[in-house]
């Protein structure tokens, strides 16, 4: 019987500073054992537990796409014990990983649809995984229009900035990047995400919207999507709760009868409307 609590060892191949404040870094990991690598088969929207012996474990959304190869990327904000320990790492360090966990985005359901991606702040991580996956040459034809609206507080807080800028120049994507407050070297949009969604007004026709970000952004974006004609079951949301096990045992991440780790973290807005407002 497989022991689900045992992390598999991975090497930190690369560490990337994502923000000017240096509080968000991406970690590119590779499995030491090829069998572990093969067993780690994931799709966008799932998460994993990063494990540091002596510090603990943390659930982190997978920021890479399986189409990018065998390395797995996570983008982590420095917060408490484990994230600080991780941030103090240098490339070459061996840490642990277990997963993947969670339902992830409903990839089958997204086929043939127009996709609207709305991401605020560093919650954009799993949406990046999704965007890269959809844009993969072998799959791009399976999806209709792709609209990406993302933003952060300041230009320095924009994660994956260069990559998003290259997306913006691609003819088969509609990309809008905004910051709450610009600075001298910012020539792009200024303003909050919800009004940008309103202005860009992506069509709800045969479309699914995926929204991740701070609670206030989500709260203000949802009514705009409703006005544009998106039904509650066509709006997807990825949730966070404090977690330990990641697979429905430790009992700490529930909202009503759903475990965010196992039944989520991705829920439709329709599902969320039926759950207690306790998250």
């Amino acid at each position: 019987m497989e022991n689900p609590y045992l992390p598999k060892n991975v090497k930190i191949e690369k560490i990337i500073d994502e923000t000017a404040g240096k509080d968000i870094k991406s970690f590119v990991l590779s499995f030491l054992n090829p069998q572990d690598c093969e067993a780690f088969s994931y799709h966008p929207g799932q998460f994993a537990e990063i494990s540091i012996a002596g510090a603990g474990e943390i659930p982190i959304g997978i920021a890479s796409s399986p189409s990018e190869g065998v390395e797995v990327k996570f983008t982590v904000k420095k917060m408490g014990v484990v994230t600080k320990d991780l941030h103090n790492s240098s490339a070459g360090r061996i840490i642990g990983l277990r997963g993947p966990y969670g339902n992830g985005f409903p990839m089958e359901e997204l086929k043939g649809k127009n996709i609207v991606i709305v991401g605020g702040g560093f919650a954009f991580t799993t949406l990046r995984s999704l965007a890269v996956y959809l844009m993969d040459d072998s799959r791009r034809k399976d999806y209709g229009d792709i609209t990406i609206i993302c933003g952060a507080r300041t230009p320095g807080d924009l994660i994956y900035r260069q990559e998003v800028e290259t997306w913006a120049s691609q003819p088969d994507l509609k990309v809008q990047v905004t910051v709450d407050k610009g600075n001298a070297d910012w020539s792009g949009r200024e303003g909050f995400i919800p009004p940008v969604v309103k202005e860009v007004a992506p069509s709800a026709d045969n479309a699914i919207a995926l929204v991740c970000g701070p609670p206030i952004m989500i709260k203000l974006t949802i009514p705009i999507l409703f006005d544009l004609g998106f039904a509650p079951n066509k709006i997807l949301n990825s949730l966070e709760m404090r977690m330990k096990c990641g697979f429905g045992k430790c009992g700490r991440c529930n909202i009503g009868n759903k475990y965010v780790c196992k039944d989520g973290p991705v829920f439709t807005f329709e599902e969320l409307q039926k759950l207690p407002q306790e998250y």
Partner: peptide, 9 residues
């Protein structure tokens, strides 16, 4: 059945 997971060093 709720539990925590902790590292004891």
């Amino acid at each position: 059945h709720c539990f925590d997971i902790q590292d004891e060093n």
